[in-house]
Design a protein around this nucleic acid. Sequence first.
DNA 1: AATAAACTGGATATGTAGGTCCACTTATCC
DNA 2: GGATAAGTGGACCTACATATCCAGTTTATT
Lengths: 162, 162
Amino acid sequence: MISQTAEYALRAAVCLAQYAELPLTTQQIASVTGVPAGYLSKVLQSLVKANLVMSQRGLKGGFVLGRRASSLTILEIVNAVDPIKRIVTCPLGIETHGVNLCPLHKRIDEAIAMVETSFAESTLAQLLASPSKITPLCALPSVANLEPRQTINKLKDEADGG
Amino acid sequence: MISQTAEYALRAAVCLAQYAELPLTTQQIASVTGVPAGYLSKVLQSLVKANLVMSQRGLKGGFVLGRRASSLTILEIVNAVDPIKRIVTCPLGIETHGVNLCPLHKRIDEAIAMVETSFAESTLAQLLASPSKITPLCALPSVANLEPRQTINKLKDEADGG
DNA sequence: AATAAACTGGATATGTAGGTCCACTTATCC
DNA sequence: GGATAAGTGGACCTACATATCCAGTTTATT
């Protein structure tokens, strides 16, 4: 349904949302989300390139969300790493009927559209505010395990100022 | 969203539904659907094993639908070759909360469920009866190209008699 | 029974997603 | 400014989905 990579990206995004402005390192995110650290690094790069996440190099660096959790949707995260592809032209390569799809592909596209809409309407903030007894990512080896570290003002400045 | 293989299976199924009881060979289905013949052969095998399609070996053999098009759903076809996997347990491997999913995975599973339901409610017959001006599979290099061949009574007998 | 058409099944190739590794760069702290 | 912690980028490996090929088997026709 959605790729492994997209699922990893969502886990990372939820994780970052939970720790708000505290920059988390790849290792920390990996340990919380269970995503292979090496691969997570690539996934995070994609999110950074899409401007959904900000990174800070060097000692005390890490990753923070690029926008408020309430404005970041599941769809944006997914599309950053593995775009949902609507069916816009006939997969059989027939051009005779332009934008019109045959009933089969129309039906499939409708299903894709439903998912797209559903994901577009879900924000990270909603996931955190979910009334479930279970915290997002269920695992969450306790916030306490993560050393409190200063937030990176430089990142905040960039986000606020320009 | 759905795999290439699943899409191929759907094309083949719609194709068979269009030609009703006329057995079509792998080559014929391939030319109508644009699916690579060699691979289509494998896909059809999966449909046969799932009892959604019947095959007849030998001269004048071919494939026909195993049931009426009105009772065959998109979901069945898809599940025969590439099962839709609902999220039933925590992907992080946490067992502490049994059947309960965290908000993220619950949300994703809801989307999968929507697609599942949607596919379960779509039959091949509905696709053929679609009011679209475009015939299913859009391409359809005209029925006329396919030599009329006798239906295989043996297959019909098995289907009707038991 | 011989022939040819057609499915079956196994071996093999290819392409892409998933994943690992490491040298390099950047930034903080002492 | 040296040491160390961290992201960056590229090369590389692995597994699986996709695809090809072919020898073997079944069956209608003659």
